[in-house]
Amino acid sequence: MSAKADTKRIAEGVGLGLRHDLAEAMFERDPAEIGWVEIHPENYVARGGTFADNLERALERWAILPHGLSLCVGTTTRYEASYVRQLRGLLDKIDAPFYSDHLCFGGIDGTYLHDLLPLPFTKESVRNVAERVAELQDGIGRPVAVENISYYADPSMPEHGWAEPDFLLEVLDAADCKLLLDVNNIYVNALNHRFDPRPYIDRIPAERVVQIHVAGHLTKKDGQIIDTHGEPICEGVYDLLDYTLERIGPTPVLLERDGNFPPLEELLGELSRLRTIYDRATAAHAASRAPAPASEARP
């Protein structure tokens, strides 16, 4: 049974990435903590075997949101039409409301780096991203959300004087696209590049945010933080998520775990804590938006 054949499933609350190493345990337990799942389309397009089976099983249980790895919207090369068609087929199959990929480049001229490389914070990058997003939205027939990445070298360019949030806001405006807000990446960048993450969050246009990512990271001996998605979420990220949700309101939150996999039980513990934060923060958001009591109108 596909999602379409069933009542339409909506990604709401807290979800977990459907990764090969976790899939079997997720299907066996089918735990209430997992509200929805996220997949990397590159793992499922034109692929059979276990991955195809897992997708079918996931469709029977959860809403699925797609998160791409290879259509990085900062590339200067036009997209392969054949892949975009295949991707659209997959997005139709899972009834995806939008497609997200990274605000970065991952290759050029048909060569792929298989990593997320930072874009210079320039007007040329902004124009280029806007072109790629428009091309992609046309190709897949649904909105595109860009994800802010973590970066380890400073991509700001002296002639522009833009910091990361300036660049991100320019991109969102020029591309008129959605945002997958990675709270962990802002946290990592804030520590590595020494800025305060909360004013950054304050500048995010809430109406553009369609999804949030949180993850764990690794702190090296020299203090540099690497966004590994292979560690438990730290307290600072939990706090920043709480702050973000209270400001932005209900938005699907994904726990990204892509390596160094613990038993599912441990991840369920993290999901429970995320759900508690989600409930508190979104309730606070709603309360802050409720109209103030007013005296009855009198004739």
Partner: peptide, 17 residues
């Protein structure tokens, strides 16, 4: 000024050379 594509090509060479 170096173009975005030139920067990306340089970066790709840095990774693969």
């Amino acid at each position: 000024m170096t173009s975005l594509a030139e920067v990306q090509r340089a970066f790709t060479r840095i990774c693969f050379d």
